[in-house]
């Protein structure tokens, strides 16, 4: 929780920088004009794969489904050598134990969505218990959602305190804060929510739950990356970024990497500081990697669908 001492240094979040929509979208589209070929492309693709939080977040998830996903995470495509693993597997709290066991020894992290994901409409004590449960089950990373209703109502202190409380509940687990940008409405609010999350203790900020459209877009991610950069300017503290939902093609993912590099620099180009929340992206990346190696355009039939 924010102490009296830290409150003095907290910014007034209603004064977060304004974002011009047309300008930010123009800038974002500039990254898509960068062309990445050959060796750079291969390195980029491997990096993308290595940054993926392979995700399943469904009511119908079972132990079996999660195990299969975990296998895929560790062995994305054994037919080809030199394919990296993904960064993490992202599941509901009830699946953490299964997943944790399945990836044991692989170095792959287990992330769990908490705080009454995806709506976040639950009392704080339940959210804290949700978080503690996931951490106790073995989650290395915790993906929380902010209370968008309270945020829209202007109750920034509530949002801030909640994030700080969850951060405390996380212990050593890294906290990703999902803004659910598709429900925020404007880039100004995305920026403001980013600032609140970072100041409240987020290790990562994340665009979306994947349950709401639109999910991650390049402009919205750019706004968040710029918030991260400004926070870094002010505090010297690095914050991670995770766009989630809507990124299913390698080409788009590579454009995201260009955006990260040109906005934050190369230091952020590792899975410690940047993740893709995605499920179908992995296979597209694999197809592209194989295509680069063989020169042949690939068919989905040759890549496992887990």
């Amino acid at each position: 929780m924010a102490t009296a001492g830290s409150i003095r240094t907290l910014p007034d979040f209603s004064l977060s920088p304004r974002i011009d929509q047309v300008g930010v979208e123009e800038r974002a589209s500039r990254f898509t004009k960068r062309s990445i070929k050959k060796e750079t492309k291969m390195n980029g693709l491997k990096l993308v794969l290595n940054m993926i939080d392979l995700t399943t977040l469904e009511g119908k998830d079972t132990d079996g489904k999660v195990k299969q996903l975990c296998y895929k995470a560790m062995h994305p495509h054994d037919a080809v050598d030199g394919i990296p693993k993904v960064a993490a597997v992202c599941v509901y709290p009830s699946m953490v134990k299964v997943a944790k066991k399945a990836v044991e020894g692989s170095g792959i992290k287990i992330a769990s969505v908490v705080t009454a994901f995806p709506s976040g409409q639950a009392p704080r004590d339940i959210k804290i218990r949700d978080t503690k449960y996931a951490v106790n089950e073995g989650a290395d990373e915790v993906d929380m959602v902010i209370s968008r209703g309270k945020f829209h109502a202007g109750e920034y202190n509530f949002v801030f305190d909640e994030i700080a409380a969850i951060k405390e509940a996380c212990g050593t687990a890294r906290l990703k804060v999902i803004l659910e940008t598709g429900e925020l409405g404007t880039y100004d609010k995305v920026r403001r929510a980013s600032d609140i999350a970072m100041h409240a203790g987020a290790d990562f900020i994340k665009t979306s739950t994947g349950k709401i459209q639109p999910a991650a877009t390049m402009p919205v991610t750019l706004v968040m990356l710029e918030a991260i950069r400004d926070f870094y300017y002010k505090t010297g503290k690095m914050i991670g970024m995770k766009p989630a939902g809507g990124i299913s093609k390698s080409k788009l993912a590579l454009h995201y990497l260009v955006m990260v590099k040109e906005t934050l620099g190369s230091d952020w180009l590792t899975n410690e500081w940047f993740r893709f929340g995605a499920s179908s992206l992995a296979n597209d990346v694999l197809m592209q990697i194989v295509k680069e190696k063989t020169g042949l355009y690939q068919s989905a039939n040759y890549f496992s669908v887990d």
Binding site: Q21, V22, G23, P214, T217, P219
Partner: peptide, 12 residues
């Protein structure tokens, strides 16, 4: 600039 958020399925 003209903001185009939420306008006719805008790109946001």
């Amino acid at each position: 600039p003209i903001e185009n958020i939420a306008g006719a399925g805008g790109s946001y």
